[in-house]
Simulated scan of single mutants.
Amino acid sequence: MDACPENTRPLTGPREGRPRPRADGLRHRLTVRQTGKKRKPRPRRSFTPEFKGEIVELCRRGDRSVGQVAKDFDLTETAVRDWVKQAEIDAGERAA
């Protein structure tokens, strides 16, 4: 059997062999287990009720998805969904 160059080594199963090279030519990211280093967590941010209300209103308009609003404002989608949910509860549109 001919030896394959390292970058073209075929995978015979989902976990066999090395990971395929990325399209941009960079190596894959190493996991915490592989490097022994943890990333520093992002500092916790706080938002005013007015800001949250504006974000909720943007989501309710329907011209952008919750995910797109979150991305546009550098927020997590989960946080935005929680704000929308809480606004619905506060308005009596949803049961707690």
Rank of each mutant, 00 (worst) to 15 (best):
R94C: 02
R20S: 09
G62P: 11
R61T: 11
D72E: 13
L26W: 01
G67N: 07
D24G: 03
M1T: 13
D90R: 05
R20V: 03
R44K: 14
E93W: 03
L11P: 01
S65D: 15
E57Y: 04
K52W: 10
T12Y: 02
K85R: 13
R27H: 09
V84A: 07
V32R: 15
P43L: 11
D2H: 00
C59I: 10
A96S: 08
V56L: 06
R45I: 12
D2F: 00
R64L: 11
G36F: 15
R33C: 13
R42K: 15
E77S: 06
T31P: 09
G92W: 03
A23H: 04
L26K: 03
E57L: 10
W83F: 08
D82M: 05
T78A: 12
K38R: 15
V69A: 10
P43R: 15
E88A: 08
T8S: 00
L58H: 12
C4M: 11
D63I: 12
D82V: 00
R15Y: 05
R15E: 07
A91Q: 01
D74T: 02
T31L: 11
V32I: 14
T76N: 09
A87R: 00
R94E: 02
C4G: 06
P10V: 02
F51H: 12
E57Q: 12
P49Q: 11
L11N: 06
P10L: 08
R61C: 10
P49H: 09
N7Q: 03
S46H: 13
T78R: 14
T31V: 07
R64M: 12
P14V: 02
P10A: 09
G13Q: 03
R22Q: 01
L26M: 08
E6K: 02
R27G: 11
Q68V: 04
T76P: 06
G25Y: 06
G36N: 15
G62T: 10
Q86A: 04
K71M: 05
A70N: 08
F51K: 09
R61D: 14
C59A: 15
V84W: 00
